[in-house]
């Protein structure tokens, strides 16, 4: 079974994740969709790692995992801080950087 099959799944997963980030307004769900996209990337890393017979791809996955964990920790902290301030805030309600 060629790697192409895995890559197609990864691409589809990535597209679904991106669609979720773009369409959902709940910051928590947007975060989950980001995780979907990261997983899609991980899947491609592993696939290419296998087809190139190189451990580098798997090491990259390791790092992506770590960064994802850190990102989730900080991101959720921010969401908690915001929602504490205002219940039911959606991603559209926050526009501190509005020009």
């Amino acid at each position: 079974m060629s790697q192409s099959a895995y890559l197609v799944v990864a691409a589809a997963l990535f597209g679904l994740g991106a669609a979720g980030v773009l369409l959902r307004k709940n910051p928590l769900v947007m975060f989950m969709c980001l995780e979907l996209m990261l997983n899609a990337v991980n899947l491609t890393f592993v696939s290419f790692s296998r087809s190139l017979n190189d451990v580098g791809g798997q090491v990259s996955v390791f790092f992506v995992l770590v960064v994802a964990a850190a990102e989730v920790v900080v991101g959720l902290g921010i969401i908690v801080a915001i929602v504490r301030r205002r219940r039911g805030a959606s991603a559209d309600d926050m526009s501190l950087l509005k020009g």
Partner: peptide
């Protein structure tokens, strides 16, 4: 097509 590994083989 399984080009040689740059770092370490699986």
């Amino acid at each position: 097509t399984g080009a040689p590994s740059a770092t370490a083989r699986l």
